[in-house]
Amino acid sequence: MIELDARRLMCPMPVIKTQDIIKTLASGDNVRVTCTDPGVMQDIPAWCRINGHTVVSSEEIDHEFILTIEVGPN
């Protein structure tokens, strides 16, 4: 599992960081992104739907928003 710390970044920066790390990963890899901007709960899933990746889980723990993404094909 790859970890991405996107705490204190405001949207769309967490989306950009997620996009940039996914570019370096292979299909089937998992990445867990930890954020503090609640906007990611909308924006990261939208970005994943558009680009063919799957949000495996998303949860809020102690004011942090944690999404696990499985990288799609290509």
């Binding site: 949207c11 769309p12 989306v15 609640p38 906007g39 709960m41 909308q42 924006d43 939208a46 558009i50």
Partner: peptide, 11 residues
């Protein structure tokens, strides 16, 4: 919550 309109457009 406000959507990101660029993402919305693409979708």
């Amino acid at each position: 919550p406000k959507r990101n309109n660029a993402l919305w457009s693409a979708e």
